[in-house]
């Protein structure tokens, strides 16, 4: 903790992550053109989550920051997930 002491991320790390993100993007576009049925949603969201995770961990420094920030981010994503799941208990059953 404290300013100036935490890790300075190298340009090369960023560029490597960026390349990965671009690769994942082209992957998801390619996969979308295939017909995977129900799986297509899962794959698309899975790739998107992976991309988001990379941005969070590297671009947004979560990997290098205090653990508390990771816990906070986890709390808010879990909250959102709970909202989604509980709402779907209403929808998934009746229609």
């Amino acid at each position: 903790m404290g300013h100036g002491k935490n890790h300075i991320v190298n340009y090369s790390t960023y560029i490597f992550v960026w390349l990965t993100l671009v690769t994942l993007t082209s992957l998801t576009v390619t996969v979308a053109s295939l017909d995977l049925g129900f799986l297509s949603v899962l794959v698309a969201l899975g790739i998107a989550s992976l991309k988001a995770l990379l941005v969070l961990l590297v671009f947004m420094h979560l990997r290098f920051d205090d653990r508390m920030f990771r816990i906070f981010v986890l709390i808010s994503f879990i909250t959102l997930l709970i909202f989604l799941v509980l709402t779907f208990f209403d929808y998934a059953n009746i229609r």
Partner: peptide, 10 residues
């Protein structure tokens, strides 16, 4: 990153 697949790809 989420809007893109949800609107354009699926």
């Amino acid at each position: 990153i989420f809007l893109f697949p949800l609107f354009y790809l699926i």
